[in-house]
Amino acid sequence: MNLAVNNQSLFWAAFLVLVALAISLWQKLGLDRDIVIGVLRAIVQLFAVGYLLKYLFRLNNVFLTFAMVAFIIFNAAWNAKKRGAGIANALPISFLAIFVSTGVTLGVLILAGAIRFIPSQIIPISGMIASNSMVAIGLAYRNLNRQFHDQRQGVLERLALGANPLDASIAIVRESIRTGMAPTIDSAKTVGLVSLPGMMSGLIFAGVDPVRAIKYQIMVTFMLLSATSLGSIIACYLAYRSFYNAQLQLK
């Protein structure tokens, strides 16, 4: 393998941070504090996760693997919830949506034999699935909030004609699911042309034949489509109700 990053090379690479710091100070962007905190957090979090993963991989314990996956899903749900201000029960809804989208996607990959049930494969893949599901749900929430605001009159008119809340909101729900899925579909269209994403770049770095590396990227494309579509649909169908009260009036 030709991997040359070590403590010494990282130290020299850290001068790249000085570039950002210098720009911030020179242009009075006021970002110097955030840059230092961000860099320190990244170093501490990644070292901690590196040692944790090394430990988990060595133990190869089913329960600890599941616990780590659950931890990832919970953190993803917590972050998605922040985008859902004003949506009641955003945390449990996000958790369920990310749990199901991650579980189903992971299950299919394992059954297909694409990944093996070992922590060094389950945990990183779960992280990729859950984080994409999280972003999709966050986008969907933002869109729900915006559309229920912008299209309030249209929703009221549908209700006034005797539509149930789902019939009154279905256009908004569908548009929000679409919004959640759009980035994944867009990046599926340009993958390899614009970006060489992390999964295949990493494998190529590690010396894997590019023709083999792209097969992993194709798998990633498939799994992210499933993750973001499942995450968005579950979250939107559970969240739209929180825009109505018990008398089925728009709040």
Binding site: Q151, Q153, G154, L156, E157, L159, A160, L161, G162, A163, N164, Q247, L248, Q249
Partner: peptide
Amino acid sequence: DPIAYRRQVSYCFQQPT
């Protein structure tokens, strides 16, 4: 039931969408 009620007492808006 609010839905059944609104089908009996129907409201039409000014400048409808």
